[in-house]
Write a protein that binds this DNA or RNA. Structure first.
Lengths: 165, 165
DNA sequence: ATACTATTGTTCCATTTGGAACAGTATGGT
DNA sequence: ACCATACTGTTCCAAATGGAACAATAGTAT
């Protein structure tokens, strides 16, 4: 790793990549974005390689693993992704047998989605990746800090819903 | 809005989109991801419509607005995006005159990137969108909570760097 | 009843995206 | 001096992505 260390040594503070975290007008936005990527992208990478599922496809599985019945629109609301992405994901997951769909007789525009046993099994295997990553990240916080973070994030998420898009 | 209210009333808790925030194995991950999207996507949407800049392109501008000189690789490190995306963004921003590039005589593989006056002006106009959104979100927190969030996020970001990808 | 508006899920299309392979340059060991 | 290894920025290609328009269905108002 000689090269790498040499490069790092040459690196003046003016180019230190971590400096930008302190040096910008929207520090919390930048940090939250960065953390989100760091929490989520490595796992999605593995999921794509190991199971050939796209981000949107696993997101659908994830939602259905925790909510017994959802419409495609519900999933779009939860994840903030556009409906066409969900639609594509639903078709793929139906083909793979991870998800079931039954038309809603009370509103024939929509259909109720449900996870299958097979889908739930897959989710349980996959979600460990995210758990491990989250644990690793949060391990740097003490109990008090964790509690504070938890309550603050809860508040923020709740508040977000009231903001106009 | 009659229809919307009717739909909302029909909605059983089993389908309440906000329920999933409490009901999953990686609550903080899910919340942080959601917040990141909520903070950033609406602004990127406007930026794309108003200035025809893609996310990666503005991210480059943002980095250079706060760091006097960077290589493409530096930007990749800061943003977590792959190098080819940065490369594309650099070419586009060079053409538009938002960014300058000068080859590094000490290492002829790389080139130093700098923002132009024109680029900085554009950034100043654009960044207000992110500031407004961040302010709106954080307005729900009191001073103590803000301080706590700030210090916790700082700690987490620092710690992330030590985690293997 | 009938028009008008809203909502759901879908298809189409253009853009964005990221991985892989590449040439050029630099570094370290022999 | 030479070879192996590593790093930078680039191009190519396949896949993912999101907006717009659409048909089918539902709700609202006259």
């Amino acid at each position: 790793m000689g090269t790498r260390r040499a490069t790092a040594e040459k690196q003046r503070p003016a180019r230190d990549p971590s400096a930008i975290f302190e040096r910008n007008e929207v520090r919390e936005t930048f940090r939250i974005s960065y953390l989100a990527n760091s929490l989520v992208l490595p796992a999605y990478d593995e999921i794509s390689r190991e199971y050939s599922l796209s981000r949107g496809e696993y997101l659908l599985l994830f939602c259905l693993a925790h909510m017994p019945k959802l419409t495609a629109q519900d999933v779009a609301n939860m994840t903030g992704r556009p409906r066409n992405s969900i639609s594509r994901a639903v078709h793929r997951m139906l083909r793979e047998g991870y998800v079931d769909r039954t038309p809603d007789p009370e509103d024939r525009r929509q259909a109720m989605l449900q996870i299958t046993a097979r889908g739930l099994k897959l989710h349980r295997r996959i979600v460990t990746k995210f758990i491990a990553r989250e644990d690793a990240l949060l391990s740097v916080l003490d109990a008090q800090e964790r509690a504070a973070l938890d309550s603050i994030l809860k508040k923020l998420v709740l508040h977000t819903a009231t903001l106009a898009v």
